[in-house]
Design a protein around this nucleic acid. Structure first.
Length: 790
RNA sequence: GAACUUGUAGCUCAGUUGGUUAGAGCGCUUCGUUGACAUCGAAGAGGUCAGAGGUUCGAGUCCUCUCAAGUUCACCA
């Protein structure tokens, strides 16, 4: 053995050794474990029963990384933590599985791909949806092995034979089926609501995906008939249908319920004055103009006062962020330009009395604006017909299954799901208690199609289609117009998107309802919704669908899973929604424990970001220091829910640990090969106490691992190995104070205890020890976890 | 406005149901190659555990308040 451990030489070899033995697959591990010890195999079968399985199961579903994303240090963190748990339980003899997978990451991936298109001078509007989908599919496929390979390089002992991708055919079928079930249970509805829409990304988002930013914008106060109103968004003024004041505001009581005439630079209009508690008399002028289709609060006011408002609201900003349904000169302008043009007109305009309608401009008005979490462009609240999941249906209190939120809270109350991570359970409960219905429609191609079909016959005017025509030109308009010149089949083939009015009847069906045997038979034609599911809709079923689509018995065998391990940053997006849908689909929690790791920060405690240049590339660290050192550095002294700073000094320290392990083993082998007189001492004076201490290290490490205290377990094993075993015991053995025999027991015990944390070096040493006939078990990975020694 | 988290050695952080003398890594000082390891070993310096009060035989740990830092949520015409 060399005097230094060379991680680069051994890691790939060792991983191949495990893969060849099929040591990650629970279906073969049991046999492997029985055959692992040559000696045992030669003896009576009764010995075999001792190492047979514990009868317990242990399962983890890997949080699927984006299929086309290279690894960052957060991935390395989850690989390290999950692999530690998995290897520990595998060695204990539990029926252990770790199911890997990747995510299509709808919006993220389409966004990246569109950037690529843009470089080539193209956009998504150049392609029909099936062509675009295929292009993205090929792109993702070309990159998809990257994530997989990198996870392997970190030593993940995941069962690759059970690998799943969120767009695998069987996964898609299951996800679609779930939608049907939800629909049949009345938990799906289609409604025209204000949704959070990003006009740059071209899709809507759920409320969880909207970020907020403090902005300073001019606040304009304008004359509004006899009243004055303040607004930062004069461009929405064309959509106003009423004016609202507080019912107790004496200044305006006289106007409530009356119609007022309002003069604009472009004309006049009358509208009612309504009263609503929402209006704060102290803010601004105490008068609010009501623009139902472009402001969430206004929308709510409109819904409660519908009867008092005769005018039917119209949207005035379209999905491209352009003005429409307005006086001609403003139509087609972008939001920012429209605002400028309107203010310019207000500044120039004088009414019949010669007064300006623009009362005041507060240029330092600070407010918070919803922005797109992806591209930071302001989110536009737009009225769009979208599909929603009712998260807390209380209409039938007897059917508890339908109240998804309630069920999730119950699993927390009963401790069927335990949250590990500083204070995160309270946050989760807060989220659950305030959850809005979940908008699952996304206006992108890269995702699972929604199985909703609109009835065409009789609704041709209410369905707008966009498609690429024979001349590769982009066309859009009502179906009634296009059906005169183009066949339905041709439109369907070249479709980009459709938009059906809320009144259009639809059915939920995997196939075209016209052709499907089970549904409507009136001969009508149908056209499928072009929206796709929110990516989180499929990932929120991940524990269920991965188990259901693998080996038939996997679901019964491994559900509910033991631990869901992921970063706390996706607690509301993912973990919470897995609880909603997992409980709904199976009646059981999808996981017994949630382990939320913290963010990895740089050595100064700063967040990592590309712009700061302080990003740690896990593969670079692996090359320099070894995967074992990387894993240990990330994990040691980490606590769930708490961020962790890691830097080069940490990797160096754990790399030194690998070298220490290497040399301790080397020394033991040397002693066996080249014995001194002291080596033959039996039952040395220090043996008893030494073994007692060794036993306490075993039980302490095991307890921490069982309690999911990974960081603590790592620290214990590190300190005891280095500062007790190496610094004290080896020195004592040199002096004959403890015998070589127990020193060997210590070494093999520590190799086993260290193996979950540092799998490569420990297995590699194990193989050396086998060559020297110091140990008999063939593979450390499937060896028995140490029990008390005597 | 609200919630949550954090405050322990120069730096980055552990500290298990409250229980001897509060730990690790890096850094620092002084020595040291004696059967593995200089990617090492030995010895050492360095802490009023943010502050104040309380519960307790006993508090870094539990409670209250104050201060500071961070994160998230909500609201804003």
């Amino acid at each position: 053995m060399d005097s230094r451990y060379n991680s680069q030489q051994t890691e790939d070899e060792i991983y191949a050794l495990w893969e060849k033995a099929d040591a990650f697959n629970p279906d073969s591990v049991k046999k492997l474990r029985q055959r692992n010890d040559n000696k045992l195999n030669e003896q009576a079968t009764s010995t075999n029963e001792q190492i047979a399985s514990t009868g317990k199961q242990f399962s983890i579903i890997m949080p699927p990384p984006n299929a086309n994303d290279p690894l960052h240090v957060g991935h390395a963190m989850f690989v390290a933590l999950e692999d530690i748990m998995i290897r520990y339980h595998r060695m204990l003899g539990d029926d252990t599985v770790w199911i890997p997978g990747t995510d299509h990451a709808g919006i993220e991936t389409q966004f990246v791909f569109e950037k690529k298109l843009k470089k080539d001078g193209k956009s998504r509007f150049n392609f029909d949806r099936s062509t675009l989908f295929k292009m993205i599919w090929d792109y993702v496929k070309a990159n998809s092995e990257v994530a997989k390979d990198q996870i392997k390089k970190l030593g993940a002992s995941a069962d690759w034979s059970r690998f799943k991708f969120t767009l695998d055919k069987d996964i898609v079928e299951n996800v679609t089926k779930t939608f049907q079930l939800l629909y049949e249970d009345g938990l799906i509805y289609r409604d025209l609501k204000l949704v959070n829409y990003c006009t740059r990304c071209g899709t809507s988002y759920s409320e969880l995906e909207v970020d907020h930013e403090e902005k300073i914008d001019p606040l304009y106060t304008i004359q509004y008939g006899p009243l004055q109103v303040s607004t930062v968004r004069p461009e929405t003024i064309f959509g106003d249908v009423a004016v609202a004041v507080n019912p107790n505001d004496d200044r305006y009581k006289q106007y409530i319920g009356k119609m007022i005439g309002v003069e604009f630079p472009w004309g006049k209009k009358t509208m009612p004055v309504i009263s609503d508690e929402y209006v704060d008399p102290k803010f601004g002028t105490g008068v609010v103009k009501v623009t139902p289709y472009h402001d969430q609060n206004d929308f709510q006011m409109w819904e409660t006062h519908k009867n008092e408002i005769s005018e039917i609201p119209v949207p005035v900003i379209n999905t491209s962020g352009k003005i429409y349904n307005a006086p001609k000169k403003y139509n087609g302008l972008g939001v920012i330009n429209a605002r400028a043009a309107i203010i310019e007109d207000y500044e120039a305009y004088k009414n019949s009395l010669g007064n300006s309608l623009l009362i005041n401009i507060d240029k330092k008005y600070s407010h918070s604006v919803g922005i797109c979490y992806r591209c930071s462009k302001p989110i536009e609240p737009l009225p769009l017909p979208q599909l929603f999941i009712k998260v807390a249906d209380t209409s039938n209190p007897k059917n508890k299954k339908l109240n998804l939120v309630q069920r999730a809270l119950e699993t927390l109350d009963s401790r069927a799901t335990k949250i590990h991570g500083a204070g995160r359970e309270k946050i989760l409960r807060h989220w659950l208690n305030n959850l809005q219905d979940w908008n699952i429609s996304r206006q992108i191609v890269w995702g699972i199609p929604i199985p909703v079909w609109y009835k065409i016959n009789g609704n041709e005017d209410k369905i707008t289609v966009s498609f690429v025509d024979r001349n590769k030109a982009y066309q859009t308009g009502p179906l009634s117009k296009w059906l005169k010149t183009t066949s339905l089949e041709e439109i369907k083939q070249n479709i980009q998107s459709i938009n059906a009015e809320i009144s259009v009847p639809y059915s939920v069906s995997i196939e075209d309802p016209k052709l499907a045997a089970t549904t409507e038979k009136d001969g009508s034609n149908y056209i499928q919704e072009t929206d796709t599911f929110d990516t989180w809709f499929s990932s929120s079923q991940w524990p269920v669908v991965t188990l259901k689509t693998n080996n038939k018995k996997d679901f019964e065998r491994f559900y509910p899973t033991s631990v869901m391990e992921t970063g706390y940053d996706i607690l509301p997006f993912w973990v919470m929604r897995m609880m909603l849908l997992g409980n709904y689909l199976t009646g059981k929690t999808p996981f017994k424990n949630v382990y939320l790791h913290g963010l990895i920060r740089d050595e100064k405690g700063k967040k990592m970001s590309k712009s700061k240049g302080n990003v740690i590339n896990p593969l670079e660290v692996k090359e320099k220091f070894g995967a074992d050192a990387l894993r240990m550095a990330l994990v040691i002294r980490s606590t769930p829910g708490q961020d962790k700073s890691v830097g080069k000094p940490d990797f160096k320290a754990t790399r030194n640990l690998t070298n220490k392990i290497w040399n301790a083993a080397r020394f033991t082998i040397l002693m066996f090969e080249n014995p001194h007189e002291t080596s033959f001492i039996k039952n040395a004076p220090g043996d008893a106490e030494y073994l007692k201490k060794l036993n306490s290290v075993i039980s302490e490490t095991s307890k921490h691992l069982s309690d999911l205290k990974i960081g603590l377990a790592a620290e214990v094993i590190y300190n005891e190995f280095w500062h007790w075993y190496c610094d004290i015991c080896i020195e004592n053995a040199k002096q004959g104070k403890i015998s070589l025999e127990v020193l060997k027991i210590g070494l093999t015990t520590f190799l086993k205890l260290l193996h979950p944390f540092m799998p490569f070096i420990t297995e590699s040493i194990w193989q050396e020890l086998r060559k020297e006939k110091i140990v008999s078990e063939k593979l450390l990975i499937v060896s028995d976890w140490p029990t008390q020694v005597s």
